Simulated scan of single mutants.
Amino acid sequence: MIFEQLKPQIESILANTKTDKNDCLLKICELLENKIDYYNWVGFYFRNGKKEELILGPYVGEPTDHTIIPFGKGICGQVAVSNKNFVVPDVAAQDNYIACSITVKAEIVVPIFVNGENIGQIDIDSNTPDPFTEEDERFLEFVCSKVAEIL
């Protein structure tokens, strides 16, 4: 499976202590978007200081107007409140969804925890309907746990 092949590459990117953290995160976004066909937008959002909002970090894919997302709004904002993974097989069926592009059909968001605190998340949009499996969730939890080690 592609996920097992990507794990050492994720670890290698994050092991390079000479690379800026944001550059490491961007390299992870590029790797995932390039290697997984149905990952069409990959990015990180982080809590904006003490504010109840997320701010966009490194990402790859179509530009987005959603650089700041209030807690509770959209899928990312809901994950900031719930502290749980959120898999959306069909974004059109979600009431509290912030549309980034008309091509997006599905989304997955997995939180990043540092010392038990939700400090951000990885957000992935797909132009493929219902592509995400439990394997995606477990892999992205791995990615988030490794990212947490450098934050």
Rank of each mutant, 00 (worst) to 15 (best):
I13G: 05
L14M: 11
A15M: 05
T17Q: 14
T17A: 14
T17G: 09
T17Y: 08
K18S: 10
D20T: 10
D20L: 12
K21R: 07
K21C: 12
N22M: 11
D23R: 09
L25H: 09
K27L: 04
I28N: 02
I28D: 04
C29F: 04
E30G: 05
E30M: 07
E30N: 06
E33R: 06
N34Y: 07
I36Y: 00
D37P: 06
Y38T: 02
Y39H: 01
Y39L: 03
N40W: 07
N40R: 04
V42Q: 06
V42E: 04
F44P: 02
Y45R: 08
F46G: 06
N48D: 15
N48M: 11
G49V: 04
E52I: 05
E53I: 13
G57C: 08
G57A: 02
G57Y: 01
V60F: 05
V60L: 09
V60Q: 11
G61I: 08
E62I: 12
T64G: 09
T64S: 13
D65L: 14
H66M: 12
H66E: 13
G72D: 07
G72P: 00
K73D: 15
I75K: 00
C76T: 15
S82Y: 03
S82L: 11
N83W: 14
N83P: 03
K84Q: 15
N85L: 05
V87K: 14
P89T: 04
P89I: 03
D90V: 00
V91F: 03
A93F: 02
D95T: 10
Y97S: 13
C100N: 06
I102T: 13
I102F: 09
K105G: 02
E107D: 08
I112C: 12
I112W: 03
V114N: 03
V114L: 07
V114P: 01
N115R: 09
G116E: 00
E117D: 12
E117H: 09
N118K: 01
N118Q: 12
I119L: 00
G120A: 01
Q121P: 10
I122A: 04
D123Y: 10
D123L: 06
I124Q: 00
I124M: 00
D125L: 00
S126M: 07
T128A: 11
P129D: 08
P129Y: 05
P129M: 12
D130E: 11
E134C: 06
R138M: 09
F139A: 02
F139Y: 14
F139V: 03
E141N: 12
E141G: 10
E141A: 11
F142S: 09
V143L: 13
C144Q: 10
C144T: 15
